[in-house]
Design a protein around this nucleic acid. Structure first.
Length: 926
RNA sequence: GCCCAUGUGGCGGAAUUGGUAGACGCAGCAGACUCAAAAUCUGCCAUUCGCAAGGGUGUGAAGGUUCGAUUCCUUUCGUGGGCACCA
């Protein structure tokens, strides 16, 4: 009987589907485990080999936990709203709903072939009205809440109204522009609503937004990369528009603090911390010598105040026109014109270039009365801090460069720590030439100066964040409509009973008038008796910010998720996905979770307990080296100087492991892809060899690089079980690695070998129902211990190795005993479920192996190991020399090596040398 | 520039977290079976000296701690990723 994987896999996939083997109940006495994948955006390209990597990893974990007796939630769905479908609609006229459904069908059929244990009865799609009803509902929760800094959490906006009515706005932490309770009560309704809008967690405001002309929409900060749109790479410009925002900045501190209690990788946490960009410092107000105004700067280094040689304010700063002197007016105007002419891209590209202009005004140093010139320069950003800085050239390289460029004096306040050539940003130096701070270490001076500033009433401690509130409007069609109606310039929420506000059908996907989205073209839909509907839609991250909650209770029409159910499933125990969402999705969903927690809808405030980032699988690309003329292909040798290269299209499967392409393979490649022939001409006669070497590179997989491998082909050829195990065997889940199918044969061989433990090709059944010997049990239990440990740690590559070793050992001793094989199959189930189930049934077991009990590791079979050196202390045998680390000096004195044991272990060879060493350690040299 | 990873055979990668470095797999070499091929099986496979027994050297480089370092510390180089006028 042969290992017929095609038949086995098809049969079991069908059977498991029919019997609902993967359906999970919310009602169980078992402990729960929630294993989640980042759901995919259903793109037209379908799956490539990089996609399933994370899905397989989580699938193994989910199956493993199930065997260990957990009630495991392991769902899948689609992030089905988004830009690409709409772009495609613009080009082809096909409705995004149609293309999205087609793409989902393709995805599903590809996923099914790999044999995942998803509970498909819980599938969610963000573009389904039954789903986005609740996205809209959560938006209304955000709209209806504010962040109470005293309670340090979100509360209903009603509590804010009560505070205003009884105490004015002093109690809310906003100290500028205060109003009393009486003043509030006297405000008009419109004024009140305007003020409340400044507090809402989802709010509308005029602001500078990232406008992408090519996409016709606004983008969030994390969707803009180097001044270009993340999708498509189109230019992005700043533009003032009325927009919806999420007040994520209110959660900056809690998002930061929450990182301490979750198991994310250090680099991912670091990325989030960077993005939030918390910095502690001070705001200092300087008097200006000419005007009756103050210039407030933000600095993290108030200790360097005696080293201030100039001030720089952003060109957009409101004081610029006020303080510029008559003599400098022309120069400043010219500079402002220059700044306006430059795009963000140019500014970013020319970071090193120093520009600026003197305003003619001077600020006064409050401590020594020195006159400090005030400049404007584009390196100071209007949007951060106060848009003004104090320049300390000896302590900050940018300030130093600025001073040198404009020949400003440089004051040294750190003595020898400043070499006069480069700035030194140290905090460890001792201050000099610093008035009352002379001799004080800089680190300590920070607090001293702030205290003094506060006393003098010209400064205060201040914390700033780089993170901005997140833009939440998109001028697009294919997204959630806002449940908002505008009347007299005021936003009014829809009642809960009117949700979902369904996306109306459109025939054209072009933008509406005045920079509005396509929905603005639908007068009938837009204009309602109550007012004009909001025509922008929500961004892609809206639906994905809470989907993990919907999986728990996907068919609930009364609630986004029943509280009892979310109490049961609780946090996601393991979340598997790529790092590309580090600062987007992961931050937004953490914020939404905190809001829902604050408002009492769920009982936890971090969504994901543990995050596993799967690495990227890179494709192999091959390049032909060409001669000078560029028309002839010649052999490429390592260490050769760079020459012209041409990308080999389609051909990577013809090249062998060392980049060698033989004439036969080359001819076959041309035969299969005749279109390549024109660009690939090799004069084999001239070279006198029947092969050439190609240059090989690892690149991100993409269609345009012709290096995409499709999982379907591999599953057809080797089966899902082989494919699953091979993807895991390739290397650690978290590492990026090149895709190479050459090793898949080895894994396939392993499964065939496993099969032969049960069935002989000629004699048929070879397993026997006999009692296992201790030696056999030892092999099994070593595997149990290692595989269980590896699976918990997501170290799947070493687990697969262990399977191979175990099967090899059983094969060597010709062990075909049922008790051993049976347990081995259970161990294997998470990795290769189809073959495990088939053989399980062949052994005559009644139930499905999916519900079998995970083997229990028995320590008695594995205490002996050839790696362990027996050493005896006071006649008592210690089995592992490393354990001897904790023995005392006295024990060492009395140490007796049990020579008989050692000799037995070393097959008759006595130890050559026994070294008694100090510090509790004994070495045995064999 | 700053931050975070990372560096081990021809290749992907192991190493019980300080204790025989190179497990397992791929590729390669030799052999068995076969008319032949496929499949399967056996042996070899870091490097260097040696017929061999057996030595020497080896985890990017240089130091340090330790009886002992791929693992910990310092410096340095290379690669990958993130942030980038954030004061």
């Amino acid at each position: 009987m042969e290992y017929n994987f095609r038949k086995i896999e098809q049969e079991w996939q069908k059977k498991w589907m029919e019997t609902g083997a993967y359906t999970v109940s919310n009602d169980s006495t078992k402990p729960k485990c929630y294993v989640l994948d980042m759901f995919p955006y259903p793109s037209g390209a379908g799956l490539h080999v990089g996609h399933p990597l994370g899905y397989i990893a989580s699938d193994i974990f989910a199956r493993y936990k199930r065997l260990k007796g957990f009630n495991v939630l392991h769902p899948m769905g689609y992030d089905s709203f988004g830009l690409p479908a709409e772009q495609y609609a613009l080009e082809t006229g096909q409705h995004p709903a149609v293309t999205t459904n087609n793409n989902i069908a393709t995805f599903r059929s590809q996923l099914d072939k790999i044999g995942f244990c998803f509970d498909w009865t819980r599938e969610v799609r963000t573009s389904d009205p039954k789903y986005y009803k609740w996205t809209q509902w959560i938006f209304l929760q955000l709209f209806g809440s504010w962040y109470n800094p005293v309670a340090d959490k979100a509360e209903s906006i009603q509590t804010l109204v009560t505070i205003f009515e009884t105490a004015g706005n002093k109690a809310t932490g906003k100290t500028n522009e205060g109003f009393s309770a009486a003043a509030w009560n006297a405000f008009t309704e419109t004024r009140k609503r305007e003020i409340l809008m400044d507090y809402r967690l989802a709010f509308s405001s005029y602001g500078e937004v990232n406008w992408c002309e090519a996409l016709g929409t606004v983008l969030a900060n994390d969707e803009v990369v180097n001044g270009l749109s993340e999708r498509g790479g189109h230019p992005v410009v700043k533009r003032k528009m009325r927009q919806w925002y999420l007040r994520i900045t209110a959660y900056a501190d809690r998002l930061l603090a929450g990182l301490e209690k979750v198991a994310f990788s250090e680099s991912l946490k670091e990325q989030q911390r960077n993005w939030i960009g918390k910095s502690q410092g001070a705001e200092i107000s300087f008097a200006l010598s000419t005007e009756d105004v103050q210039l407030t700067v933000y600095t993290t280094r108030p200790d360097t105040i005696f080293g201030v040689d100039f001030m720089v304010i952003a060109p957009e700063h409101e004081l610029v026109s006020k303080i510029t002197t008559a003599e400098q007016k022309t120069a400043i105007d010219n500079y402002l014109t220059y700044v306006k002419s430059r795009s963000d891209r140019e500014r970013m590209a020319e970071v090193k270039q120093v520009t600026g202009c003197f305003t003619g005004a001077y600020a006064i140093n409050p401590f020594d009365g020195r006159k400090i010139p005030v400049w404007i320069a584009e390196y100071v950003l209007a949007g951060y801090g106060t848009g003004a800085i104090m320049g300390v050239p000896c302590g900050d390289q940018r300030d130093y460069d600025f001073a040198k460029h404009f020949e400003l004096p440089v004051t040294n306040i750190i003595g020898d720590a400043f070499d006069g050539i480069t700035a030194n940003a140290t905090k460890d130096a001792v201050l000099s030439d610093s008035g009352f701070l002379n001799g004080v270490p800089m680190r300590d001076a920070i607090d001293t100066v702030i205290t003094k500033l506060v006393e003098m009433g010209i400064g205060k401690r201040q914390i700033n964040y780089k993170m901005r509130d997140a833009g939440f409007s998109r001028q697009r069609y294919w997204g959630e409509p806002f449940p908002i109606v505008w009347t007299d310039g005021e936003a009014y929420p829809l009642a809960e009973k009117d949700l979902p506000l369904e996306l109306p059908h459109v025939d054209k996907y072009g933008p509406g008038p005045m920079g509005e989205g396509p929905l603005a073209n639908l007068a009938d839909w837009m204009n309602t008796p109550a007012g004009k509907r909001e025509t922008s839609t929500m961004p892609g991250y809206a639906g994905s910010s809470w989907y993990f909650l919907r999986y728990m209770d996907p068919h609930n029409n009364e609630n986004f998720c029943d509280r009892k159910v979310s109490d049961y499933w609780n946090q996601v125990d393991v979340y598997v996905g790529g790092t590309e969402h580090a600062v987007g999705h992961l931050l937004y969903s953490r914020m939404w979770t905190k809001v829902l927690y604050d408002l009492g809808h769920i009982c936890f405030d971090e969504p994901y307990k543990r995050l596993v980032n799967q690495g990227m699988i890179t494709g192999r690309s091959y390049f032909f080296k060409t001669d000078e003329s560029g028309s002839q292909i010649v052999s490429y040798k390592k260490d050769e100087p760079a020459a012209t290269f041409k990308r080999m299209k389609y051909g990577h499967q013809y090249v062998d492991n060392v980049g060698k392409l033989t004439k036969t393979a080359f001819d076959k490649s041309l035969q299969d892809h005749p279109s390549d022939a024109a660009t690939m001409v090799v004069d084999w006669q001239n070279d006198g060899e029947d092969f050439i070497y190609l240059k090989e590179e690892s690149e991100k997989m993409s269609k345009s690089k012709f290096n995409v491998d499709n999982p379907d082909d591999l599953v057809d050829k080797y089966g899902a079980d082989t494919f699953r195990m091979y993807e895991m065997f390739l290397g650690p889940v978290e590492a990026s690695k090149p895709w190479d199918t050459k090793g898949i044969e080895g894994v396939h061989r392993f499964l065939k070998k496993l099969w032969r433990l049960f069935f002989d090709e000629i004699k048929g059944k070879s397993w026997k129902d006999e009692k296992a010997s201790p030696g056999e049990l030892k092999i099994l239990h070593r595997a149990i211990r290692k595989i269980e440990d590896d699976t918990e740690r997501f170290s799947y590559n070493t687990a697969v190795s262990t399977f191979m070793i175990c099967v090899n050992e059983l094969n060597d001793i010709k062990c075909h005993k049922k008790p051993i094989l049976e347990q081995l199959l259970v161990l294997l189930t998470p990795y290769a479920p189809h073959i495990a189930e088939e053989l399980w049934q062949q052994l005559g077991n009644a139930g499905s192996i999916l519900d079998a009990a995970y083997p229990v590791f028995d320590v008695q079979y594995v205490t002996e190991s050839s790696k362990e050196y027996p050493v005896s202390v006071n006649g008592k045998v210690r089995t592992n020399i490393s354990m001897a680390l904790d023995i005392s000096q006295a024990e060492v004195e009395h140490l007796i090596l049990a020579n008989e044991v050692v000799q037995k272990w070393l097959e008759g060879k006595a130890p050559k040398k026994i070294i008694y060493v100090k510090n509790k350690m004994i070495n045995v040299v064999i």
